[in-house]
Write a protein that binds this DNA or RNA. Sequence first.
DNA 1: GTCTATAGTATGATAGAC
DNA 2: GTCTATCATACTATAGAC
Lengths: 203, 203
Amino acid sequence: MSAASTPERPAGGRREELLAIAARLFAERGFKNTTVRDIADAAGILSGSLYHHFDSKESMVDELLDTFQRELWKEYDAITGSDLSPRAKLEAVVRASFDAIDHHHSEVAIFQNDASYLIGFERFGYLEERNVRFRRLWTGLLEAGVEAGELRADLDVELVYRFLRDTVWVAVRWYRPGGELSPSQVADQYLTILLEGIAKTDG
Amino acid sequence: MSAASTPERPAGGRREELLAIAARLFAERGFKNTTVRDIADAAGILSGSLYHHFDSKESMVDELLDTFQRELWKEYDAITGSDLSPRAKLEAVVRASFDAIDHHHSEVAIFQNDASYLIGFERFGYLEERNVRFRRLWTGLLEAGVEAGELRADLDVELVYRFLRDTVWVAVRWYRPGGELSPSQVADQYLTILLEGIAKTDG
DNA sequence: GTCTATAGTATGATAGAC
DNA sequence: GTCTATCATACTATAGAC
């Protein structure tokens, strides 16, 4: 989206700094509830100055979501292209997703809270495309897992997919990076529940 | 919240009609993204006329959420007060929740999408209280289930509670009342996944 | 119960000086 | 890269006529 001109420092120049501030505010309050003045205030400048760096408020959230989704899909593609078993791939995708919640918390939160609103604009059509790809990824893995005899055959794949997708991403609402639980620990517990259930089966 | 003056018809008078329209729009677009003009337009009147029925836009969403939560808690209290086993109570609470998604779809959607924003106003402090009650309900049932030997003891109750809570309510994002799946069917599948898992355990 | 008319404010964005 | 100043618009809400 931008040709990194002079990458002198980690997290780049002023533009990336402002983008990070906007990300935090969008994630905390929602896109619509965050004004350009809020962002400027948090950055210690006036709202008009923001427009030296960005075309519009929409451009900011666009860049945030697009960058994040590209990175995430690189990881997903590496997993699906590997030679792991369907069940192992499914576990890897879950773990990669919880890692994303940890490392790109704001972006995930924005996507969770505001995607349904943003998707209404042509500019954000790519979000819909990614949703379709995401659905294919999960249902493909679930079907392959059933076929391989690794997963139960009596469940509605479409429905399991929705539970899976939602449960993974909705964790962004309570997960706090740097808190007590690592993304790996959360993924462990989640995969145990998902795969084995919470009922006591043996004595 | 209001003394039903002349209940002549199902769903009452004009006030309830307008409230239902507002609920639909709030649920579809979000509270902040829905203007009083949108609501008035959908009702075929002008925005100023809405203020004959309601103090403010906030009053509308307040009445919607408060009414809904009162009704929901009546059901929860009946379940917890029953003599069912912990696991059966847990199942009943899950079923009651999916029923709520079916029967009060807009209200659940509004709560899911906008509660975190609304909770910032003192007026909506009761939402925070209900969240606390909700947490106690779930964790209490989970702990009782473990103690009764019905649920696995090796899981983090706090974490299971979050997954449970989120997975149940987030279904409002895809569930459509009157669609192919009944709330009971969704609850069946969900409880199977939650209790038994999706992995194939035996031949 | 709805309309006309409008107040008061907040918002996204722009132009040009520094 | 930021500030000053400001425009145009959209929003919630009100007062009083019908």
